[in-house]
């Protein structure tokens, strides 16, 4: 369960403190529910997601997490001078997987289909290879809740198909909080929705209701 209580967030800009992006968001996300964040550009979807993920902290308010939350799927950092394998090992170690390190690295190697390139430095990778590795790393760990910002799959058509399948698989066994502009992606993966508008969040048990509210608001 993730309890967001009265969260405010604003960023520092070049001209001092910016406007409030989130003002007074209070939402409770039950465990095991897949949630889509809906809202226009700049409504604070990514902001809320990074607050939930713990990468950023709210200006005011609290977020309680009683579960293991992933980093944004497919957006884990890669150190360019290290090889794919070394990066994978680093992430395994950070997440405390010392005993089954080899298995997980083998899984990432296998899933990413990078073959020999896995032992080459990241700076030699194409952007497709990078995102394949990043996506594979996200798939190699078991989290209670995964967060995903726009990216569900990357790489060539064959890899994208495989990635989409395992992403759906993952959304069945764990919780998912995602931002996506494609309505189809949201409908495929989520049951519930949070609609962000004017810095406030509205919870909908059914994703369709959230999308309806969002579209009606836009039509006005």
């Amino acid at each position: 369960m993730i309890a967001i209580k009265d969260v405010y967030k604003r960023y520092k800009t070049r001209h001092g403190m910016g406007e409030m992006v989130l003002c007074g968001v209070t939402v409770t996300i039950p465990s095991g529910v897949n949630v889509g964040l809906i809202g226009g550009n700049g409504a604070g979807k990514s902001t809320l997601l990074s607050l939930i993920g713990g990468v950023d902290h709210p200006t005011k308010g609290t977020i309680e997490r009683n579960c293991r939350i992933s980093w944004p799927v497919g957006q884990g950092g890669l150190e360019p001078t290290l090889t794919g394998r070394q990066n994978a090992k680093f992430v395994c170690r950070v997440h405390g997987h010392y005993d089954d390190l080899e298995d997980r690295v083998a899984y990432i190697h296998d899933f990413s289909e990078l073959r020999e390139a896995f032992d080459e430095p990241i700076y030699t990778y194409s952007s497709g290879m990078r995102s394949r590795l990043q996506f594979s790393m996200s798939m190699a760990f078991d989290f209670d809740v995964y967060i995903s910002d726009e990216v569900t799959a990357a790489g060539d058509a064959a890899f994208r198909k495989k990635a989409a399948a395992s992403f759906r698989d993952l959304s069945d066994r764990a919780g998912l909080i995602m931002v996506a502009h494609g309505e189809k992606t949201l409908k495929d993966n989520c049951q519930s929705g949070i609609w962000l508008v004017d810095g406030k969040a509205h919870w909908f048990d059914k994703l369709d209701d959230a999308l309806k509210a969002y579209n009606e608001h836009n039509a006005k």
Binding site: G53, G76, G77, E79, F90, V94, H95
Partner: peptide, 10 residues
């Protein structure tokens, strides 16, 4: 180590 700060544990 900037790249690794996207993992909040670091």
């Amino acid at each position: 180590n900037k790249a690794f700060f996207s993992y909040r544990q670091v």
